[in-house]
Simulated scan of single mutants.
Amino acid sequence: MSAIKNLRLKIFFPTFLLLIFFSCEQKKEIPVKAAATSNEITFVGFSKVGGKGGNYRTIKITKDSIQLEQGSTVTKKHKQWASSVTPDHWKLLTSSFDLTTLDHIKSSESVQAQDGIDETFRIKTTKKSHVYVNSYHDSIHYKQFEKFKSQLDKILPKEYK
């Protein structure tokens, strides 16, 4: 004896199950973005601050823009400049850095208290953020910062060098 006594229900139920079966799709795998699995530079900041005149120079670089501010607090002069960054310039600038050695670079103490100038680098990658103050004492790893500064001088206008 059948559990379903009504003939309409006997026809409707298997049809309903077939419709559900055919309407279910397999979930497609969403590809993981390459940036999430790789480690690449997303931001570079460079600044020189201090000295007797209260001088400052700050440069912020992303994949699509560069911003520069410089001036002196004593003379109350302030200049700004901004521009877009081409993919070639971005590659040129970021190729200066060796991502495998970023964790090994050593900073030194600030010298602003003795009217010195602090040189600071900020490098953000997709996985980590790094800040280095006066790392020019690290003779082994500082070469990549020197290379970055020389590449940066090629991009900046003459009046901001």
Rank of each mutant, 00 (worst) to 15 (best):
L92K: 05
L92R: 03
L93I: 08
L93K: 00
T94Q: 07
T94L: 08
S96I: 06
S96V: 07
S96C: 13
F97N: 00
F97R: 00
F97M: 04
F97T: 02
D98Q: 13
D98S: 15
L99D: 01
L99V: 10
T100F: 12
T100C: 08
T101F: 07
T101R: 12
T101E: 13
T101S: 15
T101N: 15
L102Q: 06
D103E: 15
D103S: 10
D103V: 04
D103W: 03
H104F: 13
H104M: 12
H104L: 12
H104P: 01
H104I: 02
H104E: 14
K106A: 13
K106M: 13
S107Q: 09
S108P: 00
S108L: 02
E109D: 10
E109I: 01
S110A: 04
S110M: 05
S110K: 02
S110Y: 06
S110T: 12
V111E: 02
Q112Y: 01
Q112L: 07
A113H: 12
A113G: 08
A113L: 14
Q114N: 13
Q114P: 00
Q114E: 12
Q114C: 06
G116Q: 02
I117T: 11
I117F: 08
D118V: 06
D118F: 06
E119P: 05
E119N: 11
E119D: 11
E119S: 09
E119L: 09
E119Q: 15
E119K: 10
T120W: 00
T120A: 07
F121I: 10
R122E: 14
